[in-house]
C-alpha cells in the first residue's frame, strides 16, 4: 500500500505542473481523488488493513492526501493567475491619450457673471430674474424716463408690434412691448412684488438697436444691483462698489465716483476704476458702471415711501467687465463660440 501511495504522490507531482486548463485539471483530479480515483481506492482499502497496522497506514494516507492537495492547490493558483492575466490583457501604455472627451467649460461671459453674482451673494444680495420682453412702462416710465427721453427713440430699442400680446409679460396700460434695454426693469418688477428690505442682483440679457462692432452687440448682458431699506446711504453704495472692484480687479485697483445723470437715480455717478495690472488698459481710468441713490420718483412709481426708505442701485455690462478681465478686444468673439476661444478661460 505504501508503494501505491508513494506512486500516486509521485505521479501527481509529476503531472500536476503540466496541467494547462481548468477542465483538464478537473478530469485529472477525478482520477486521483474522485469517487473512482486511485487515492480514493487506496483509502477504501483501509478496512482490510490489520488492526495493528492501521495507525501507520492512516498516517501514510494522510500524508499522501496532504501532498496531493498541496499539489492541486498549486495548480489552482497557477491556473487562476493565468486566467486573470488573460482577462486583464497586456499591460497598458499609460502614455496613450485618453479617447474620452474632457469636461466642458462655462462660457467666458457666464464665468464672469457667476464670479460677480457670487461676490454679491456673499455680501447679502440674492438673485432676481425677469423676462427679456418688457413694456415701456417697466423699462422706462417707472424708471422716470419720460416718453420724450432720447433713450426711448425707436432708434435705440427693439419694439414688438402693437397688435401683439405677450402671454406672460404684464402691461401697466396700453404701452408697447419691447426688448429690455437694461436690467433695471428687474428693479421695478421686484419692488412691485416685494417689500423692503430688498437686496437683489439681477444678471440678464439686454438688447439695443446698435450696429454691431467691436464694442456693440445686438444683445449683451448686464448685472443690476438694488438695495432698498431704511437708512441705506451713499456711503454704503461706495463701500459695496469699492469691495466689488477690489475683489474682481485686485486690491491695487482704485475707484472714483464721477457725477453723472440717470433718470432713475439721484445723485447719479459713473464708477471708474484704475489698475496697474491690466496690460494695455493699465493705469488709466476705465468706466465700468452707472450707479446712484434710487430716485424718489422711482419709489413713488412702485409704491414705496421715499420718506421712510432709501436705496442704491447700480448696473454694469458683463461683457465690458469680461473684456477687461480676459483681455478680449472684440465683443463678437464671445458670440462666435470657437471652442479654442471658449477653452482659453477655463
Amino acid at each position: 500500500m505504501q508503494e501505491q501511495l508513494t506512486a500516486i504522490v509521485a505521479g501527481v507531482r509529476e503531472n500536476a505542473p503540466n496541467i494547462q486548463k481548468r477542465a483538464e485539471f478537473e478530469a485529472y483530479k477525478a482520477t486521483i481523488s474522485g469517487p473512482k480515483g486511485s487515492l480514493t481506492d487506496v483509502m477504501k482499502g483501509m478496512g482490510k488493513v490489520p488492526k495493528e497496522d492501521k495507525p501507520a497506514m492512516g498516517k501514510a494516507i494522510n500524508e499522501a492526501k496532504k501532498a496531493v492537495e498541496a499539489a492541486f492547490a498549486e495548480v489552482i493558483e497557477r491556473l487562476e493567475a493565468a486566467e486573470l492575466a488573460a482577462k486583464l490583457g497586456p499591460a497598458i501604455d499609460p502614455s496613450l491619450p485618453s479617447p474620452d472627451s474632457v469636461r466642458g467649460t462655462l462660457h467666458p461671459i457666464a464665468q464672469v457673471r457667476e464670479e460677480m453674482v457670487n461676490l454679491f451673494r456673499r455680501i447679502g444680495f440674492s438673485v432676481a430674474e425677469a423676462t427679456e420682453v418688457e413694456t415701456e412702462h417697466y423699462c422706462f416710465d417707472a424708471l422716470n424716463i419720460p416718453s420724450d427721453h432720447p433713450a426711448r427713440d425707436m432708434q435705440d430699442s427693439y419694439y414688438l408690434p402693437d397688435d401683439l400680446t405677450v402671454n406672460n409679460v404684464s402691461k401697466e396700460n396700453d404701452e408697447k412691448y419691447l426688448l429690455r434695454t437694461h436690467t433695471s426693469t428687474v428693479q421695478i418688477r421686484t419692488m412691485l412684488k416685494e417689500k423692503p428690505p430688498i437686496r437683489i442682483v439681477a444678471p440678464g440679457r439686454c438688447f439695443r438697436r446698435d450696429t454691431p462692432d467691436a464694442t456693440h452687440s445686438a444683445n449683451f448682458h448686464q448685472i443690476e444691483g438694488l438695495y432698498v431699506d431704511k437708512n441705506v446711504t451713499l456711503l454704503d453704495l461706495k463701500a459695496t462698489l469699492d469691495h466689488f472692484v477690489k475683489t474682481i480687479f485686485g486690491p491695487k485697483a482704485k475707484t472714483r465716483l464721477r457725477p453723472s445723470f440717470f433718470p432713475f437715480t439721484e445723485p447719479s455717478f459713473e464708477m471708474d476704476f484704475f489698475s496697474p495690472d491690466l496690460g494695455k488698459l493699465s493705469n488709466k481710468w476705465l468706466e465700468i458702471m452707472g450707479c446712484g441713490m434710487v430716485d424718489p420718483k422711482v419709489f413713488k412709481a412702485v409704491g414705496i415711501d421715499p420718506e421712510v426708505y432709501t436705496g442704491y442701485a447700480f448696473g454694469m455690462g458683463i461683457e465690458r467687465i469680461a473684456m477687461i478681465l480676459q483681455g478680449v478686444d472684440d465683443i463678437r468673439y464671445y458670440y462666435q463660440n470657437d471652442v479654442r476661444f471658449l477653452k482659453q478661460f477655463a
Binding site: D100, S101, V102, R103, G104, T105, L106, H107, I109, A110, E132, Y158, L179, R205, F207, S217, A218, N219, Y334, Y335, N337, V339, L342, K343
Partner: peptide, 14 residues
Amino acid sequence: LTGQNFDEAFLYSL
C-alpha cells in the same frame, strides 16, 4: 452639462 463634457455657447436672440 459641463460635467457631461459639453462646452457652453452664447448666441444671439435674434
